[in-house]
Amino acid sequence: MPEQDAAESAPQVVSSFLERRREQVAQRWADALLFRSVFTLSRDEAVEACKAVVDALSEVAVSGRLEDIDAPGFGTVREQLGRMAATRARAGSTPSQIADEVAGLRVPAMDLLRDEFTDPTSAQAQESVLALTVLLGTLRLVVMETALDANSELIERQRQQLLEVATPVIKLWESTVAVPLIGTLDSARSQVVMESLLEAIVDQRARYAILDITGVPTVDSLVAQHLMKTVAAARLMGAECIVSGIRPAIAQTIVQLGIDLGSVVTRASLADALAYALGRQGIEMTRSDTGASAR
C-alpha cells in the first residue's frame, strides 16, 4: 500500500499508481469520447492508445516535471495526440472542445487513485490526488497545443488552395502570358506564382511573361526579392519577364529602400508591358483610319 511508504513523494505515488493500474485506467479511458471517437474501428486499438498515454504520464510523473508541457515523457505520445486532435478537428471540434474532452479523463482516473488509499482523507492521499490533477491539467495543455497546431495546418491547407485559385496566368497574345497579382505577396504565394508562371511558359511556349503588380499594396525588400527570383527563373527557361503596374508610391518605396531591380524590365502599366512585348516580337499596333480616327 502506498501510504505505508511515507518517504514516497506524491508524484512517485502517482507514477507507481499509473504503472500498477495501467490496464484499468486504459480500459476506462477507452470509453471516453476522446478515444472512442478517434479509434472507431477497434476498441483494442483505443485501449492500446490509452496505455501509451498512461505510460507517458507515468514517465512524466517520475521525472517530477508535472507542470512542464515540454517534459520528455510527453514526447512519445505527442504524435499520437496530434493525430487524435487532428481527427477531432476535422470532425469539427474546436481546440477548447478537444481540451474539455481531455478534462473528461480526470474523473475515472481520480476514482481509481482514491481507491488506492484506505484513508482518502490522509495528507498523502490528498497530495497524490492533487499531483494527478496537475498532471492531467498539463496533458490537457499538451493536447490543446497539438490541436492548435493541427488547426493551423488545416487553415494553412485551405489558404494554399485559395492561393492557387487566386493566381491565374492569362495568355495575352501569341507567346505572351501575364499574371495579374492582387493582394499581399508573401513567400508561399510567391512560390505558387513562380510555379504557375513557369508552367504557363512551357505550356504556351511563351517568350514574354508579364508580372503585373498593380494590385499589390506594398512592395518591401522581400517582395522585390521574390519578383527578382521569378524573373531570373523565367530567364533560365528562355523567357523574358516584364514587371508592370509599379505605382508612383511603390516606385518611391523601391528607391528609398535601395532595392536594385537591376536588369528587370519595368513598365508603368500592363498595356505598356504588352506593347513592349509585342514590339520586341516585331508586332506593331496601329489605329486603323476607318472608324477610330473619325471621332
Binding site: 493551423s152 495546418e153 494553412e156 491547407r157 494554399q160 508573401d186 513567400s187 508561399a188 512560390q191 522581400l222
Partner: peptide, 8 residues
C-alpha cells in the same frame, strides 16, 4: 509549404 511559410 506549411513549415516554410510559417517561418517565412
Amino acid at each position: 509549404q506549411v513549415p516554410a511559410s510559417r517561418k517565412g
